[in-house]
Design a protein around this nucleic acid. Structure first.
Length: 575
RNA sequence: CGGGGAGUGGCGCAGUCUGGUAGCGCACCCGGCUGGGGGCCGGGCGGUCGCAGGUUCAAAUCCUGUCUCCCCGACCA
């Protein structure tokens, strides 16, 4: 029963004043969601239908690869999280509370601990492996900054799946099956998407992929070569060949140049009439917990036209990294604004793009106020290690193909956890020889709400949402024009009944409104196909049809006689 | 956590500077007209102005405190 006259669909003409992202504006305007607090959202009937259609697709694809659905609690004893170390490792993002007996509890932000704990109790033998489990469950995360409506919230439903194998080869096999399943999920949902290599982050483990849906409200930047066909990676891990810069020939030794007041690359480039890419930017950092470097200051050099990526830097140096403060800089290197490797009392690392640029003379700070050194040659004038830590920029190349950078929202990710959770939680099994091994795990997440919001971001126009047909709240909206109780309304009822019987999800606008507001609401809500029943075409025994995406009106409409067949045929080419 | 902005009916806003009985558009209710692109006329309902305290004869408006929300950054499986 989906008659608009009896449906809670609170459409708004104006978006909330604080809505910035398009999906945020449209989802509220179309009556899909309502906000309760920062990062806390309720789903209204139409929005929940879209969400549940995404859930349905995911469930089918999980079951297709043999994963089994379960359900685990959100409220969990902190004990488990203490055993894996995450109770202390995770900061304010983890909701912590106490129960009436004063026991520490947490609200789960993900379910590795819960899942691994159960498997540890159940699995004994290699004969029990491999298998995989998944569930749809609420996750609670005290996000520092919820934003963009439903795109980044503090409470959301996630499908998370976990695989359990006896060895890495088994994990690889399951991982590949999940990659294929994920591709089918995103293809079926109708999104534009990319699979990119990603950082393993705090989850630990070995390999990881993210699934990114490009859209303006995206939080991540993705590097793409040939639209993702040649290369696709998050900028946090991406590598590419830098754009060329011509370096002057080097003299026999560095030359002092007076550079008064040129504390920035831009000023220095102007002063010396040299491209920024021919200058070396010095970036002093303090490393700790690294095996390769003693705790303390390290000086990073990168091309003047490049920026450092913190994630890549931390990984390259093998520890945690922060920017050095002014005292540390003056103490160990020189005056800020004129820093350089020569004479610096710290290890020097050089970004790979500097070496890749070629041989020739570089300009660096002289560690002396208002002085730089020109004609500096890598290796000859100072020793260094090479690290790849810079941010790829648009126009760089991968295998000769130039890259572009697009904002995108992460709609899913997969991780090879290895034994990160099975070891601390004693999830082990006995092999054929009676030897004990830790179970090798993978974890696989998808956020259905983000798929919904990303679809709205990707498919909308000035009039509203234009849903992909696989996840639209309603497949067809039948708009009855004319007076309530009139011929047009009666015909619309018959069309509604026939299309429902034909198996479509149909919404009938049977409200007593004017044509303008009905058609405007239909376009805002964005059903992929609209059937309009009005006297113009009814006189010829026909109804009008419009494909929402691109506002394509079907020439001549569709005949009432044999309507469901005609709609089925048309449906085939609705996006 | 740092920076910026905002809390006045369901939504969007004015009023605050300069204190004096809380307004507008849309939505909503009633009646009528209209019935193919948010239509028209008439009549209505609805707000302790985020909260608390203070100043004052009088506070949406001034002062103090506090809560909440949004944006940018930091942060973020």
């Amino acid at each position: 029963m989906t008659r608009l006259s009896q449906t809670l669909l609170p459409t708004e003409r104006q978006p909330p004043a604080d809505a910035e992202a398009i999906s945020h504006q449209l989802m509220v305007r179309a009556g899909l969601v309502r906000q309760m607090g920062a990062g806390l959202w309720s789903w209204l009937p139409a929005g929940w239908r879209a969400h549940q259609r995404v859930v349905g697709i995911i469930r089918e694809e999980m079951e297709r690869i043999g994963s089994q659905e379960v359900l685990m609690p959100v409220l969990q004893p902190a004990e488990l999280w203490k055993r894996t170390g995450r109770y202390d490792a995770i900061g304010g993002e983890l909701f912590r509370l106490k129960d009436r007996r004063d026991a520490d509890m947490v609200l789960a932000m993900t379910h590795e601990e819960a899942m691994t704990n159960h498997v540890a109790q159940i699995v004994r033998s290699y004969r029990d492996l491999p298998f995989s489990l998944f569930h749809f469950q609420i996750k609670e995360r005290d996000e520092p900054r919820p934003r963009a409506g439903v795109l980044r919230t503090r409470e959301f439903i996630m499908k998370d799946a976990y695989t359990f194998d006896r060895d890495e080869a088994g994990l690889q096999a399951q991982y590949e099956r999940f990659r294929e399943a994920y591709a089918r999920v995103y293809d079926r949902s109708g999104l534009r998407w990319y699979e990119v290599e990603s950082d393993t982050g705090m989850m630990g483990g070995k390999r990881a992929h993210e699934y990114m849906a490009p859209c303006a409200a995206g939080e991540d930047d993705v590097v793409l070569a040939d639209g993702g066909a040649v290369y696709a990676a998050n900028v946090e891990v991406a590598s590419a060949d830098p754009q060329p810069v011509t370096l002057p020939d080097a003299p026999d030794a560095p030359v002092r140049v007076e550079t008064p007041g040129t504390r920035t690359i831009a000023k220095l480039a102007a002063h010396l009439d040299r491209p920024a890419g021919a200058l070396l930017k010095a970036f002093p950092v303090v490393v700790s917990g690294s095996e390769a470097y003693a705790d303390g200051v390290v000086l990073l050099l990168l091309r003047g036209d490049h920026e450092v990526v913190d994630v890549k830097l931390a990984k390259a140096l093998g520890g945690t990294v922060r920017q050095a403060n002014e005292d540390e800089i003056r103490d160990r290197i020189g005056p800020p604004g004129f820093l350089g490797p020569i004479g610096a009392d710290v290890p020097v690392v050089v970004d790979a793009a500097v070496e890749a640029t070629g041989t020739g003379a570089w300009v660096v700070g002289a560690n002396e106020t208002d002085v730089h050194l020109d004609g500096v040659v890598l290796g000859r004038d100072f020793a260094y290690d090479v690290v790849d830590v810079r941010a790829v920029v648009a126009g760089d190349t991968v295998d000769g193909t130039p890259v572009t950078i697009e904002p995108a929202i992460e709609v899913g990710n997969i991780f090879q956890l290895m034994t990160r959770y099975s070891e601390p939680l004693d999830a082990t099994f006995l092999d054929e020889d009676g030897k004990t091994h830790a179970i090798v795990m993978g974890s696989y997440g998808i956020g259905p709400a983000r798929i919904v919001a990303a679809a709205v971001e990707q498919f909308h126009d000035e009039r509203g949402i234009a849903w992909p047909k696989a996840i639209a709240p309603y497949e067809i909206e039948v708009v009855g024009l004319g007076k309530p109780g009139g011929d047009e309304a009666a015909a619309a009822e018959r069309v509604y009944d026939e299309l429902r019987e034909a198996g479509f999800d149909v919404l009938l606008d049977d409200r007593a409104g004017g044509a303008g507001s009905k058609l405007a609401d239909a376009e805002l809500l964005g059903a992929p196909l609209r059937i309009t029943v009005g006297k113009r075409s009814l006189a010829d025994g026909r109804v009008e049809a419009q494909i929402r995406r691109g506002q394509e009106t079907i020439e001549g409409g569709l005949p009432l006689d044999g309507l469901s067949d005609a709609v089925r045929e048309l449906w085939e080419r609705v996006p």
